[in-house]
């Protein structure tokens, strides 16, 4: 098992580095004129005495854009290993510093929405499994499929339209209201909470469908297994059969599935954060990438590669934890 894990981790690292290289190559191959634009802008400022060409050469050197793709990547990698991802072109600050500032909003939002999902999707999934082929089942299935079919930006906008524009119950976007600074501690929490209602609901609805179907499938499988029949045969009340015998066994695949959700925790939700202007990692990296901010884009994609690998390794470990057969192989 240890050997397997070490191999898996090494492989993960290799994929992170390869992925970063692919991203770097793609970005470098694109004819982005951002540096030229920036050089021209800089040369027009009165304090700067160099010409645009000189500035461009300087900027290229500064960002490691003067050499070939491979040498540039090696240079980037050398810095990245020491967690130095350079300064963002758009925000003008250290990429890691910005990341540290904004990541927690994304994480907070995702954790809340995960809790909501769990409390909505799992009971509904179980209910659907118990009433298989009945109206309830159909309703839950259609609801789950509808959630999967919803475009995230659309459901977000519809929420905004209904609750912010028409009913005026909730703030339209952002994380803090205008009066935020003048509020007390509880007022501040309430303000942020009211701003988070719609984004969290959007995120939750998007994932509820998947989780509901997953729960239902697994629950059905469990319900059809022999030990459930045994439990029923020995005259246990249905409540006990479902809650004690069946549900606990459904948890095993669910827990494994959750470990796969890790990247989405830290990766932020691009669309939701953009629609609601939540200053999380998704919105920041979206804004940076739209502007061709190479340091930020490189950092963010590498981070995503890293998260994906971690989550894969985690789910492998989780499999091993919950299923002893895996441990042997």
């Amino acid at each position: 098992m240890t050997k397997f894990l070490i191999r898996r981790i090494l492989l993960g690292l290799l994929i992170v580095i390869l992925g970063a290289f692919v991203t770097y190559a793609v970005i470098r191959c694109l004819p982005t004129s951002y540096l030229e634009k920036r050089a021209i802008e800089l040369s027009q400022s009165p304090q700067v005495t160099e010409t645009a060409e000189e500035l461009l050469a300087k900027l290229k050197e500064e960002y490691g854009m003067d050499g070939g793709i491979f040498s540039g990547f090696v240079k980037w990698l050398g810095q990245a290993i020491t967690l130095d991802f350079g300064n963002s072109w758009k925000y003008g600050e250290s990429v890691t510093k910005i990341f540290g500032e904004v990541i927690w909003w994304s994480v907070l939002m995702n954790i809340i929405s995960l809790i909501v999902e769990v409390f909505v999707a799992i009971p509904l999934g179980i209910l659907a499994a118990r009433k298989q082929y009945r109206a309830t089942d159909y309703a839950v299935t259609v609801f789950a499929l509808a959630c999967i079919s919803l475009p995230s930006f659309y459901i977000g906008t519809v929420f905004k339209y209904i609750f912010a524009v028409k009913l005026k119950w909730l703030p339209l976007y952002g994380l803090k209201g205008n009066m935020y600074e003048s509020l007390g501690t509880w007022g501040k929490i309430g303000d942020i909470a009211s701003h988070l209602v719609m984004p969290v609901a959007t995120l939750a609805i998007l994932s509820i469908g998947f989780l509901m179907r997953y729960t239902r499938t697994n629950m059905l499988e469990v319900l059809n297994s022999d030990y459930i029949r045994t439990a029923r045969a020995k005259g246990l009340p249905e409540k006990a059969v479902i809650n004690k015998h069946a549900f606990r066994n459904t948890l095993i695949p669910l827990v494994t599935a959750f470990s796969g959700l890790l990247p989405s925790f830290f990766g932020g939700a691009f669309i939701t954060e953009t629609v609601f202007q939540i200053p999380g990692i998704g919105l920041y990296s979206y804004n940076a990438m739209v502007q061709g901010d190479i340091p930020f884009a490189m950092f963010y994609t590498t981070f995503i590669f890293f998260l994906t690998q971690i989550s894969l390794i985690l789910s492998d470990i989780m499999y091993a934890v919950v299923d002893p057969r895996v441990r042997v192989n």
Partner: peptide
């Protein structure tokens, strides 16, 4: 696995914004 790990939206956003510029 490598291709699977490439973040989809970031890639398309970068390429899309470059196409915007060009």
């Amino acid at each position: 696995e490598l291709f699977n790990a490439i973040p989809f939206y970031p890639m398309l956003i970068i390429v899309g914004s470059v196409m915007d510029q060009q």
